[in-house]
Design a protein around this nucleic acid. Structure first.
Length: 1161
RNA sequence: AGUCCUGUAGCUCAGUUGGUUAGAGCGCUACACUGAUAAUGUAGAGGUCCGCAGUUCAAAUCUGCGCAGGACUACCA
């Protein structure tokens, strides 16, 4: 364990004081590790967190800091967590941790969503019952108790996963939606809506199963197998237009009576028709023809685009005799005059004058089947609706508002009345004359009792006889069926309670525009468009396990009461008991102002308890609760308030905890939780519920398929965590794709992250620790004057990185931050800085150069730990503790220092890296290994900036590529050939259409022309008869080659390498080769890095070799940490002791013998 | 059916306000390196930038129409 020498002081920005303090903070021994084991690190750090309560400490540390508000969307604990939850939870954790490091107080309360249909279905499956059994085989009370028990089944598993992925969340004090306090807050919210007249009872068209006698949710309708292809009788009915002012134009030159055609696949809805809907922008025509069944002359109206569907036009005289497709036939002349009433060939003719749908609006027609009249509103009128298409049918929609959602909507807009001539059992009502009592679908009859002809068929026959059928045929379509009874559903008007969200539509839209959506398109697109087409929120659910609607009503519906608190409920119960309506108060044990959990535990507001309460109205009549439950989405949308038991407790607390600064969930919550949060806060508080929201995408398998148990491609989160550790999994998920893009999960990717990022970081730290422990550098002294070019460079990179990471974490772009951190660690720090500066860490004297190196690397590692802490909380904590002796999660986010960012320095280092690459490439091509020194490299320059940069990086590059000198050539004076390239961007803007010709001309320039342009700065060209002026700035001129030398180039940079080997160079190369072999030997013989040795080399008669050893003896001895006197290095006879004697092969033709022993301490 | 997202190398992804020869990592092949070494370097193979049409001197990038995958919502005459 590191030994701390003094307690942590407040940091100062003054470099001298800072340095002094740093020295105090610095451990004097750094822990070293043998191998990187991320799962083990995670385990150990997790235990440390639990022992120290690091999460609690992090909150305590920020207790007076400005709050950053986060809301946890409650998962349902009745299912097991999957790998996608790891993703979702990691994203939440990242920003909470980041904001904590930034100095904010971030509370994170866990939550559980406990109500809802999936839970009910699960329990029913388990108990082997159906909804019908509730109240008979099982009491509501027992049923709900079973639900309550089932719903928290997997909380332990969830909590375990949450801990293991490192998500800091207050799991000890979650909000739970079934708790009485929670429900009380929900009731309070409902009452706010009620008091604002935003809660009302209305009816809507909902999927309804007459066989089961229940409405169905869209969830139920989406069960597999509910939609089936069925053949139904469809009819095109004819609606007779009344002749009046509005319809006058239809009667001009009319043939017989005038009808509007409308198609339906459900003829049983025709008696309930009250309107016809046309597309206002669609074109319609009149067609003169005969009725195919009665053969009476008639004029029919339909959409022009639908003509071909009903009238054949494959004939020679289209204006006369064309057969209707109703009855196939061939054309004949003089068709109208000669029409044979019994014939199958029906002539038709489009009458002059097309017209638009809106011209039809307002026209009235005779009721088709006058069994009953609507009680309210207008009827039998043509209206306009946007939803009308010309894909099938006639372009006119038969509108029966009771049996279609679109129909109802458009009817309401136009104040059209309704007819509901079908009862809840699916039978025609008594108003339906000869049809009364018949089921509208044959499937509804008890088995074996269905008639031969369905009512669809009977009605169609009747229409034919009446002369009101234009076409009757079987039609195959996809129709939803009840998943329980397997019988077709009806769309039927049902009573429901609604939240009048449409009344606040403008506010919902306006407030949404202030929310920071990630990605933006979800907010403007999916969510924005949804708000534009907002419907009132249907709150009612006819179920058992959920929050009961707190509305009591008298039987005559004249009086009703909405309850907004337990206090109010108790008062009303008291009145009721007093009036003798109830015998006693079932919640008698509840004390009104006692906020203790124990007190609240005495009350259960679920069914059947709430149902048993009968209140008394001001008029003295009994009031019963509306039996509906509310949509569970209202539960979770209430969490900002209900988690605080607002307003009964924490009335002030809400100010600090609302709205949220940040929430995150899957994109599938757009119309779920994201919407309900937004709707409730807008309607009740006229505020947003969250300022920023990240909607993350799905986690797919590696082939891009959705994960599912059925396909067996679901990834077990626990196994994954066991294998790779949370850090690698989180880092992989975040760095691989933006949170909102779908992630193709592939364990190979995690391995890569482990190998590249974590190993590089781990090795860099271990390198640091190894030499820091050996050399005990002074980490406290001020080394600003001693910093080398590469120190300043890596610090510049580091500060750029801090800035970039900060910006991107702030803007909820963790992927960009992660990739930048990773690149910094792998490329800049490990592969460049450490590689270049290795020797500074383990060679030479103590001093400020060495101190500067250690301090620089220490700072880089420490900052990397801080920057990566939000994403990789375990490993970064271990790293930071090893460097600075406290948890990174209690650290303050590093501030970047603009003064340390030197873009010119970064540029020229980039140049150095390019030059290095180029030289290595030439060496490779020419077959000269890096250990062989070369005399010189040449770089042509075309401007002063480049020259200055080269001079600055000269030492660095020469050392890296093992070359003695760098010669900078003036491109203008040397014998270089040059290359010219047009700058398309600059030139294109000026040249326009001539661009291609100019580019071709420039590319064809010879050396003389290039020189001319460089000398004059301008040049006139005549192309295609036009004179254009070419400027020096319009082209890039680069040196291309140096005759006689080996050259490589990359973009504008060209390097030439002199590969002549002189005798001294060869000898130096040999010496280096020897050093390398001896180093390997040291390692192989198990010597420690710091061990000093005795070294002797045996003469082998090769003069060149012996000269090399003698000439470079000092170098050889120093590099290998040998204490042998210089003049004893090369010997004729080696000591004859076998363990120290080794043969070395330097190349194919050269070998030697050496003697190594440890130098006794 | 509507709304939205995605489509670039075998895989995962970058690609600035349209600009030359479209990049990186992994994987593959060959060679080198070896006191940070399950690392690293150099070279190579690998692309109809989903398709078609349009705008433009110039399109992976802008526009339109499609195709494929996905999400959500709806399901209608």
């Amino acid at each position: 364990m590191p030994i701390r020498r003094c307690s942590i002081g407040k940091r100062s920005t003054n470099p001298v004081i800072f340095a002094a303090l740093l020295n105090e903070l610095m451990p004097i021994h750094f822990k070293q590790y043998d191998e990187l084991d991320l799962p083990k690190v995670a385990d150990e750090v997790l235990k440390q967190w639990e022992v120290e309560d690091t999460f609690g400490q992090s909150l305590e540390l920020r207790k007076d800091a400005p709050p950053f508000v986060f809301y946890e969307g409650p998962p349902s604990a009745n299912g097991l967590p999957g790998i996608h939850h790891v993703m979702a939870r990691a994203i939440k954790d990242i920003f909470c941790r980041y904001q904590t490091q930034k100095g904010n107080l971030v509370h994170r309360k866990a939550g559980w969503d406990t109500h809802g249909l999936p839970i009910e279905l699960g329990v029913e499956k388990e108990l082997g019952i159906t909804k019908e059994d509730i109240g008979t085989k099982i009491s509501i009370e027992d049923y709900n108790a079973a639900c309550k028990k089932a719903v928290m089944r997997y909380t332990d598993v969830w909590n375990d996963m949450t801990r293991r992925i490192g998500f800091w969340l207050d799991l000890e004090h979650p909000y739970v939606t079934y708790q009485t306090k929670y429900i009380e807050s929900v009731w309070w919210l409902l009452k706010q809506l009620y008091d604002k007249d935003l809660l009302y009872k209305g009816y809507t068209i909902q999927p309804y199963s007459p066989a089961a006698g229940t409405g169905l949710s869209s969830h139920e309708l989406n069960q597999p197998g509910t939609y089936k292809n069925v053949k139904d009788t469809s009819a095109v009915a004819m609606f007779k237009v009344k002749e009046e002012n509005a319809s006058e134009f239809l009667f001009k030159d009319a043939f017989g009576e005038v009808f509007i055609l409308a198609w339906t696949t459900t003829p049983w809805t025709l008696p309930s028709n009250t309107a016809l809907t046309v597309g206002p922008k669609l074109e319609y025509v009149r067609v003169k023809t005969f009725n195919p069944y009665t053969h009476e002359p008639q004029t029919v109206v339909l959409a022009k685009a639908r003509l071909n569907a009903y009238f054949r036009s494959d004939v020679e005289e289209p204006m006369h005799a064309i057969a209707s497709s109703v009855l196939l036939g061939v054309p004949q002349k003089d068709a109208f005059e000669n029409y044979d009433k019994n014939g199958k060939l029906i002539p038709w003719q489009v009458l002059d004058g097309e017209f638009y749908g809106h011209q039809l609006e307002g026209i009235t027609y005779e009721q088709l089947l006058p069994y009953a009249q609507p009680e309210q509103g207008e009827a039998f009128k043509v209206i306009g609706g946007d939803f009308v298409t010309t894909e099938d049918g006639t372009g006119v929609v038969h509108t029966a508002p009771s049996f279609g959602a679109d129909d109802m909507r458009v009817a309401r807009q136009h104040n059209i009345g309704t007819l509901t001539l079908v009862d809840l059992q699916g039978r025609f009502t008594k108003d339906m004359g000869e049809f009364a009592g018949k089921y509208v679908k044959n499937e509804y009859y008890p088995e074996g009792t269905a008639p031969d002809k369905s009512v669809d068929v009977e009605i169609s026959i009747k229409l034919k006889e009446m002369g009101r059928a234009f076409k009757v045929e079987k039609y195959e379509h996809n129709y939803p069926h009840c998943w329980r009874t397997d019988k077709p559903i009806l769309y039927y008007p049902l009573d429901s309670w609604f939240v009048r969200t449409t009344a606040k539509k403008d506010r919902l839209i306006a407030l949404n525009k202030t929310i920071n959506w990630k990605p933006e398109s979800t907010g403007t697109g999916r969510f924005g468009n949804w708000l534009e087409n907002l419907q009132d929120w249907n709150l009612s659910r006819s179920r058992y396990w959920g929050v009961p609607l707190p509305i009591w009503r008298t039987k005559d519906r004249d009086e009703e009461l909405c309850i907004g608190s337990l206090k109010q409920l108790k008062e009303e119960i008291a009145k009721s008991v007093k009036a003798g309506v109830m015998k006693e108060d079932p919640y008698a044990s509840f004390k009104v102002d006692d906020m203790s959990d124990a007190n609240y535990d005495t009350v259960d507001l679920h069914r059947p308890f709430a149902d048993n309460i009968v209140l008394v109205s001001p008029g003295g009549k009994p009031m019963k609760r509306e039996t509906d439950l509310i949509d569970v989405w209202f539960d979770s949308g209430s969490m900002p308030y209900a988690q605080l038991h607002y307003p009964f407790e924490n009335e002030d607390g809400l100010k600090e905890k609302f709205p949220a600064d940040f929430i995150a969930e899957g994109v599938d919550q757009t119309r779920g939780w994201f919407y309900t949060l937004h709707a409730i806060s807008t309607l009740v508080f006229d505020q947003v519920a969250y300022k920023a929201v990240v909607s993350n995408g799905l986690v797919l398998d590696k082939n891009g398929q959705k994960m599912s148990k059925r396909l067996g491609n679901a990834v077990d989160p626990f196994k994954t965590l066991d294998e790779f550790g949370a850090d690698a999994v989180r880092w992989y998920m975040i760095s691989n794709a933006s949170p909102w893009d779908n992630l193709k999960f592939d364990a190979e990717g995690i391995k890569e992250v482990q190998r590249k990022f974590f190993r590089a970081l781990f090795n860099t730290y271990n390198f640091f620790a190894l030499y820091a422990n050996i050399d005990k550098p002074e980490l406290g002294v001020d080394v600003s004057a001693a910093r080398t070019e590469s120190d300043r460079w890596i610090l510049s990179r580091l500060n750029s990185l801090i800035k970039l990471a900060d910006t991107n974490y702030t803007e909820y772009e963790p992927t960009i931050a992660a990739r930048a951190i990773q690149d910094f660690v792998v490329e800049d720090l490990s592969n460049w800085y450490v590689r270049l500066n290795r020797r500074r860490f383990w060679k030479g004297e103590q001093g400020n150069d060495k101190n500067a190196a250690f301090q620089t690397l220490h700072r880089c590692l420490e900052v990397v730990a801080m920057l990566s802490a939000p994403i990789a909380p375990f490993f970064s904590d271990r790293l930071y503790r090893d460097l600075a002796e406290k948890s990174v999660h209690l650290s303050n986010w590093p501030k970047h220092d603009d003064a340390l960012i030197d873009t010119e320095l970064e540029e020229r280092t980039k140049l150095a890296q390019s030059l290095t690459t180029l030289v290595l490439s030439i060496r490779k091509k020419e077959g000269h290994r890096v250990r062989q020194p070369l005399q010189k490299m040449m770089v042509p320059v075309t401007d002063a900036i480049m020259r200055k940069r080269l001079e600055a990086i000269q030492e660095l590059v020469l050392g890296e590529v093992n070359v003695k000198e760098l010669v900078i050539l003036d491109a203008n004076e040397s014998k270089l050939t040059k290359k010219i390239k047009p700058d398309f961007k600059k030139l294109g803007a000026r040249m326009g259409k001539l661009m291609k010709t100019v580019a071709a001309a420039v590319n064809a320039f010879d050396q003389a022309q290039i020189a001319e342009l460089e000398a004059n700065g301008t040049m006139k060209l005549t192309l295609d008869g036009q004179e254009v002026e070419l400027l020096r700035e319009d082209v890039d001129i680069t040196a291309e080659a140096i005759p006689g030398l080996s050259v490589a180039s990359d973009g504008p940079i060209t390097v030439a390498l002199d590969i002549t080997l002189t005798e001294p160079l060869i000898e130096e190369g040999l010496a280096r080769e020897l050093v390398s072999r001896i180093q390997t030997l040291r390692k192989e013989t198990g010597l420690e890095v710091t061990d000093r040795i005795n070294l002797h080399i045996q003469r082998n008669g090769n003069e060149r070799f012996e000269r090399a050893v003698q000439g470079h003896a000092k170098h050889i001895l120093a590099e290998t940490l040998a204490l042998t006197p210089e003049n004893e290095l090369l010997v004729t006879d080696l000591p004859n002791i076998s363990p120290g004697r080794h043969a070395l092969e330097l190349d194919e033709s050269l070998s030697c013998a050496v003697y190594i022993t440890p130098n006794g301490r």
